[in-house]
Design a protein around this nucleic acid. Structure first.
Lengths: 134, 134
DNA sequence: TTCTATGCAAATATTTTGCAACTCT
DNA sequence: AGAGTTGCAAAATATTTGCATAGAA
């Protein structure tokens, strides 16, 4: 199970702890509304706007990365260092997990001027099944 | 200026033509609301919900890719084949353009079972300026 | 003609903001 | 105590949907 390092300048509040624990437990990227729902169900509710604020803060401090998987309209968050990449079918939205990570080829270009905290690669296309039904 | 190939099964309507032209003219990714605004200003208005539907259709037919740059909350669209990647500062949101494209390293793995129509890579981090003010 | 796409209105979903009360340190 | 954080309400933004009509093939 993944574990994030807490940015030392951030106060440890109940809500921040809970949000981070939820992310650590999650199998993949999670939306703000998911986090809120999971916490409510667990009997430790945190208000949605607070979740948004906490997530923003964590992203700014390099603990999380924010993206949109599946292009579902909602942003999703996951711990930095979750190194998985996917191919997504734009028709049926099936996800095909990939292996390997292309980050290293960019590191030299950025050099000292940019401190990489996370990254994300998504490949879009049409899967075999959907290609047939065209 | 980029030019997309029309998916032959799609009817050519005024609205679809206009949306695609807007994308072809754009320097980078554009949001649905932007497209609507630009077309309205040009005296060729298209209703926002129509723009959304047209964009969805184009994505499903492999003409566009949908993403979120800058994590601004709105989805943005660009022609498939616009091969630019960025590093984004999670604090000040500055964008640093990158060179090169990591896609090729994944092509063998997907092989025949997936027809790639687009992809997206974003690198997150903290830029030099923001790192100082910590 | 036939089937699909669009305009429009209205619903739904997502994210942000203001402010008083509260909690870490 | 002081600074930063949260709960809550409410606004702002973004996206989707239903349906009658218009338009492409």
């Amino acid at each position: 199970m993944a574990e994030a390092k807490w940015a030392p300048e951030l106060k440890k509040t109940r809500q921040r702890r809970l949000v981070l624990e939820t992310l650590e437990r999650a199998e993949g990227p999670v939306a703000a509304t998911d986090i809120t729902a999971r916490l409510a169900q667990a009997g430790t509710p945190v208000w949605l706007s607070t979740v948004y604020r906490v997530l923003d803060t964590f992203v700014e401090h390099g603990m999380l990365q924010k993206t949109t998987v599946l292009e579902s309209g909602a942003a999703v968050y996951e711990l930095c260092g979750s190194h998985r990449h996917y191919a997504v079918c734009v028709v049926c939205r099936k996800i095909i997990p990939l292996h390997g990570c292309p980050l290293d080829s960019f590191r030299p270009e950025l050099g000292e001027r940019f401190h990489i905290t996370g990254h994300r690669l998504q490949i879009y296309g049409v899967c075999g099944g959907c290609e047939k039904n065209r």
